[in-house]
Design a binder for these strands. Structure first.
Length: 747
RNA sequence: UGGGGAUUCGCCAAGUGGUAAGGCACCAGCUUUUGGUGCUGGCAUUCACAGGUUCGAAUCCUGUAUCCCCAUCCA
């Protein structure tokens, strides 16, 4: 993984360090109801990657709790994807359905504890009773059923005595919870359908919220990593595990942002639409962001993995630029793959002063790729070049063949154009050219300067091949549906001409077609009789970029809308006036205090002990406020008297405000008196310039570069020097004194 | 009228009170028998916005804005 830790690795580090877990177990838990795509690759990379990084293990688990949607063909696709990316799930693939008996037992346990009940409300009522995001729900009358009745009903549900939808099992949590997921979530539903693995054994199937956390627990998972949309489900996850009193270590859930890539769609639903609607040729259509699609197109697992690594892992919804992916595949293939010549749009060139034939030994790799290998390249009087490598009326900066400008045939001779032959419609059909016999590549004595070398094939020996050119499937950056499909996303070139070695010798499956891009021998349609190549990705092309000048879009800076703060009540207003007028607090601080009754009473109490209104207010608003935000006021370990004391020793210069924060943190933790803490830890401020001065000298001596930069005008560096001094004194140096001294010394 | 997340360059993304990392993209220059690659340099006086605390704030406090998720017997 990358050098800077992502937040998940940081959590794992922390958990290992604190001894919460001794082993890291993760899992990749897809539902087998669709083909895996590059978003899954990200999840695979994270889950298997973390397991690998910490010498742990990652399970591949099929989350198959919904028999109406899932199928074994998807299981295979999922296994393929994980394998292709180079990960090992160990002996067996796991299935949630393997745990159905255990999960059932846990349900019984919850019922016995009175924490779950069988509800018999019709579906619409259940929805209605749930309430809305802004209004509380209400509990079903069936929630009052006795444990015995629930047990009996649940067993009969299992036996299949009821029809689908007649009853459900749900957790008894809180129908008024602000988190909708906690309003008595469903645990089990009746489904009289065949399960692709469990067969017809079960008439009831557990819901995600119940099955997932328990499956994690059963497997001994330590870190249950999922995407952001499950954040609300975390409360249920914890509730189930906590209520069941499962012995630790038990898993905890952590969420990251799912992958979005522009010009593509990632949702299973939209992918399915494309496949079923015939917009693409199947799940492995090379334009699809499915693993099967990338594989078919010719992407390497390394490139996908590297992509997953470079995009990082975070909690902000993001849309990664496809160019990032394209970079990864080019970067991977650049050092791996042989270069060969293939003409996609042939233009015949007859070299009038050349007779006979010769074989040129040409390296497969350019000078900067440290690989060995070459092939024999036939050269003859009749060759083909790319149609757009000749131009009768060249634009400025055109480096290729023109009536006036000679060009080198890559690995061969320099030619110049003598005659342009056109058909009746004016289309160029042939070029008559002359070659320079002494210009052969490697032994050029001609002294002719050319601007570029172009690719070509010899007419007599070139092989005809099919080349499939793929472009992005959508033309919209954030495609909505099929209306955004790029009509030019697929083009077949039936009669491209390729040099013979590629077909006869087959040095590799992937090639760079010189000056064009990377191509892959299609794993399915390629035959010796009819070779087929897929374009993986084009080379970077700074020439076409120059010619297609697209209007530079100047993204309008988004305007910030400013809202209004809610108005103060009468009492708050009078308190505010008192604070600003009588006590001289600034309006911001007074505002915060006046609006919070707990804070203001805390403040006034402290003010009775120490008459230092401004300092006291600042610390109450900035530090105390944070603590009461996080904890119940009653759980606070410090009191007003101690805060007053803290402020006093800051006011009188015993400690700096920087140290005060440190002391405050200690008070929060231990409840000790500030003076005591200062004494115990020896935190008394050093203000004597005679003591500070030598430290500054030392720092200055150690950082000559930064001294030079500072003197050159980089005044931001003042903070650097002050920081260093503070650091070496454990924060005890008086920052004001340090600042003055440093500024003086560096003048 | 609720709850939960998020916001650092065009796109990703580090950074958790002391010099705003890195990659992609982009722009120059050099190298080059691929208009490729490689190399060098340029790309955030500023971290959604407005205040406050502090010697010092992307980081702490307050408020505001914007986006995403939650009312499937889906996962």
């Amino acid at each position: 993984m990358s050098k800077s830790k992502n937040f998940l690795s940081a959590i794992v580090d922390e958990d290992l360090k604190s001894g919460k877990y001794t082993e890291v177990i993760t899992r990749f838990p897809p539902e087998p109801n669709g083909f895996p795509h590059i978003g899954h690759a990200k999840s695979i990379f994270i889950n298997f990657g973390i397991a690998r990084e910490y010498n742990g293990h990652c399970n591949l688990r099929m989350d198959d709790t919904n028999p109406t949607k899932e199928d074994t063909k998807y299981v295979e696709a999922l296994k393929d994807a994980v394998e292709w990316l180079g990960y090992d799930w160990g002996k067996n693939v796991k299935f949630t359905s393997d745990y159905f008996p255990k999960i059932y037992d846990y349900a019984i346990e919850l019922i016995k504890m009175g924490k779950a009940y069988v509800d018999s409300l019709p579906e619409e009522d259940i929805r209605e009773y749930r309430g809305t995001v802004t209004t509380a729900g209400k509990r079903s009358k069936y929630a009052e059923r006795s444990v015995e009745e629930n047990l009996d009903l649940f067993e009969r549900m299992k036996k299949g005595e009821f029809k689908d939808g007649e009853h459900i099992l749900r957790a008894k949590i809180d129908m008024t919870a602000a988190n909708m997921k906690m309003r008595d979530p469903l645990l089990y539903r009746i489904r009289h359908v065949h399960h692709f693995r469990a067969g017809d054994e079960w008439a009831i199937y557990p819901m995600y919220d119940f099955a997932h956390c328990l499956s994690d627990y059963i497997e001994g998972v330590s870190h249950s990593i999922c995407t952001l949309e499950f954040e609300n489900n975390r409360d249920v996850y914890n509730w189930v595990l906590d209520e069941l009193g499962l012995k630790s270590p038990r898993p905890y859930q952590h969420e990251f942002a799912r992958l979005g890539i522009n010009y593509t769609v990632m949702s299973k639903r939209k992918l399915l639409e494309l496949v079923e609607g015939g917009q693409v040729s199947g799940w492995d259509d090379p334009r699809l962001p499915t693993i099967a699609g990338y594989k078919r197109r010719g992407y390497t697992p390394e490139s996908i993995l590297n992509f997953c690594d470079t995009i990082g892992i975070a909690k902000a919804n993001s849309m990664v630029d496809v160019s990032q992916l394209e970079f990864c595949i080019r970067d991977d293939l650049n050092t791996k793959v042989p270069r060969v010549m293939c003409v996609l749009d042939p233009l015949k060139v007859t070299i009038v002063n050349y007779d006979g034939e010769e074989e040129i030994d040409a390296s497969y790799y350019p000078h900067d790729v440290p690989k060995e290998g070459s092939r024999s390249l036939p050269f003859s009087r009749e060759i083909y070049i790319e149609r757009d490598d000749f131009n009768e009326n060249p634009p400025k900066g055109y480096f290729r063949l023109t009536p006036e400008q000679p060009v080198r045939l890559k690995h061969a001779y320099i030619i110049s154009c003598k005659e342009v032959i056109k058909d009746a419609s004016g289309k160029i059909t042939e070029i008559k050219a002359e070659y320079f016999a002494d210009s052969k590549s490697g032994s050029d004595t001609s002294g002719i300067k050319v601007k570029s070398a172009i690719h070509w094939v010899s007419a007599g020996s070139a092989k005809e091949v099919e080349v499939r050119i793929y472009d992005r499937l959508f033309s919209a950056e954030a495609p909505e549906g099929i209306e955004d499909i790029n009509p030019d996303s697929f083009e077949v070139i039936k009669n491209a001409l390729i040099e013979p070695a590629v077909i006869n010798q087959k040095p590799d499956e992937r090639y760079q077609f010189e000056r064009q891009g990377y191509f892959y021998a299609d794993p399915i349609d390629y035959t010796d009789a009819k070779p087929v190549f897929n374009k993986i990705v084009g080379l970077k092309d700074s020439w076409s970029k120059k010619t297609n000048v697209t209007a530079a879009k100047s993204p309008a800076k988004k305007v910030q809308v400013d809202g209004e703060e809610v108005a103060m009540s009468e009492e708050q207003k009078s308190l505010f006036d008192k604070y600003t007028v009588d006590l001289g607090l600034n309006s911001e601080v007074a505002n915060i205090l006046a609006r919070d009754t707990y804070l203001s009473s805390f403040y006034e109490e402290a003010l009775n002990i120490l008459n230092s209104p401004v300092s006291l207010a600042n610390i109450v608003v900035n530090e105390v406020a944070r603590e009461i935000k996080e904890k119940e006021a009653s759980a606070l370990k410090f009191n007003t008297k101690q805060i007053a004391e803290l402020v006093k020793i800051v006011d009188d210069g015993t400690i700096s405000s920087k140290i005060a924060k440190q002391v405050f943190e200690e008070m929060v933790k231990t409840g000790n008196n500030p003076t005591q803490i200062v004494e115990d830890k020896g935190l008394v401020q050093i203000s004597d310039p005679a003591k500070i001065s030598p430290i500054i000298d030392e720092i200055i001596e150690k950082n000559p570069d930064n001294v030079a930069k500072f003197k050159a005008g980089n005044t931001k560096l003042l903070g650097f020097f002050v920081g260093q001094v503070l650091k070496s004194t454990g924060g005890k140096a008086n920052p004001k004194v340090v600042n003055e001294l440093v500024a003086q010394k560096l003048k």
